[in-house]
Simulated assay, not measured.
Amino acid sequence: MAKHKIYTMSVAKVYPHYITKAEKKGRSGEEVDEITRWLTGYSQEQLDKQLEQGTDFETFFEAAPALNPSRKMITGVICGVRVEDIEEPIMQEIRYLDKLVDELAKGKAMKKILRS
Rank of each mutant, 00 (worst) to 15 (best):
I74E: 01
E62Y: 15
Y42G: 04
E34M: 13
G80P: 07
A64V: 12
Q53F: 15
V77H: 07
G41M: 02
E58F: 12
G76H: 03
P65S: 04
A22T: 12
E30F: 10
H17F: 11
T20D: 10
L67R: 12
K72C: 14
R71Y: 13
A64S: 07
E52M: 15
Y18M: 15
T36Y: 04
E30C: 14
Q50A: 07
I19E: 04
R37P: 02
P69Y: 08
K25V: 06
I19S: 03
F57N: 05
R71N: 13
T36P: 06
I35S: 01
D48E: 06
V83H: 13
D56V: 06
V32G: 03
T75M: 14
K25L: 15
R82D: 11
L47G: 03
K25H: 14
G26Q: 07
K49V: 11
A63R: 10
K72Q: 14
F61L: 01
G80T: 10
D48M: 06
P69D: 06
I35Y: 01
I78V: 11
G26N: 09
V81K: 08
V77S: 14
S43N: 09
G41R: 01
G80C: 06
F60P: 03
E52F: 04
D48P: 08
G80V: 05
Q44Y: 11
G29P: 15
I19V: 13
K21R: 14
Q50M: 04
D33P: 15
E45K: 12
T36A: 03
F57C: 09
D56R: 08
T55C: 13
D33E: 13
T20V: 12
H17P: 15
K72T: 06
E45Y: 05
Q46L: 05
K24S: 04
H17M: 11
R37G: 01
T40D: 00
G41N: 02
G54P: 00
E45F: 06
T40K: 00
S28H: 00
D56G: 08
W38F: 04
Q50L: 05
E23T: 12
P65Q: 01
E45Q: 05
T36S: 04
R71Q: 15
G26M: 07
E45D: 05
I78S: 07
N68E: 04
V81C: 15
E31R: 01
S28V: 00
